[in-house]
Design a protein around this nucleic acid. Structure first.
Lengths: 155, 155
DNA sequence: CGTGAAAGAGCGGACTT
DNA sequence: AAGTCCGCTCTTTCACG
């Protein structure tokens, strides 16, 4: 993790379709060196995945919700079961197991509030292990990213 | 937005480095048709960006926190000021303005708890407009994505 | 890490349905 | 309007210095 790799990460976190040549100009290495480094970071799992981000509002997904979920029991088998369900549920974009008042924080996407109501029925009300949940409706996506600022990274 | 585009979106949301040929096999169109469709979706903003996702734990960012923030005043000028600060703060990965108990939900990344403590001092305790905040420490990133499930999309 | 050649992928034009 | 085929160009890849 030297400054070249950090610079590469900074760039590809914003845009992973830059060519090796474009990267090389900004990084100060040869194109091939950039590619070799990126390949290694992908193999090592430093770069976890390369994805396209879709604009929700352009594909009929107009509401985003953040739900705090508390389970009846925090026994491992119930936790794992809940995690598995969240992973396999398409509406769920993100899910975190957390300390604090709630057990899970779930970020999900829906076509409209009716669709979310249906979701709560299926996954929360009909799940005996869900003790309670509290819904926050997103009014403004102030900032939305998965990127890590290079200022915070270490060599 | 026909079924071909939806299939393409499904694929590139998981991996945008697939070649046009690989896509064509799964989609059932020619490679060129896939490229043209993707190009158009990028131009139209349906695909918003193409990014590499970095594994935080491998670059010295070991803790993720989800914070519910309540402001003293919800007057527009204060809201906007807080939003602007969040957008410009590198530690903040995501920030949502929400209805519910809190005003904002902030997802942020830090090197360790000490670094988060410093963060709270700077941005929460020293901000007179922050009435209270509640921190959830992420123990497990169960699911982490910005993707939209294709099952939910409409043609 | 850089160079250079070979293989592969992307891009655009012309033609077809 | 959209898809396919084909050829050119740019990119990636890999062996070697």
């Amino acid at each position: 993790m030297d400054k070249f790799n950090l610079k590469l990460l900074e760039l590809v976190q914003k845009n992973n379709r830059l060519t090796a040549e474009q990267l090389s100009e900004k990084v100060g290495l040869s194109p091939t060196a950039c590619q070799k480094r990126l390949k290694k970071m992908r193999e090592d799992g430093v770069i976890r995945e390369d994805i396209a981000v879709v604009n929700r509002s352009k594909v009929g997904q107009s509401v985003t919700l953040i739900v705090e979920v508390t389970l009846e029991s925090e026994r491992p088998e119930y936790l794992d079961q809940f995690k598995k369900t969240m992973r396999n549920t398409p509406e769920v974009m993100q899910c975190f197991y957390v300390t604090g008042n709630a057990d899970f924080i779930v970020i999900l996407s829906a076509k409209n509030m009716k669709a979310y109501e249906d979701f709560t029925r299926r996954y929360f009300f009909e799940n005996r292990n869900v003790k309670r949940f509290h819904t926050n409706v997103v009014m403004d996506e102030v900032k939305l990213g998965l990127s890590i600022p290079v200022e915070l990274l270490e060599e």
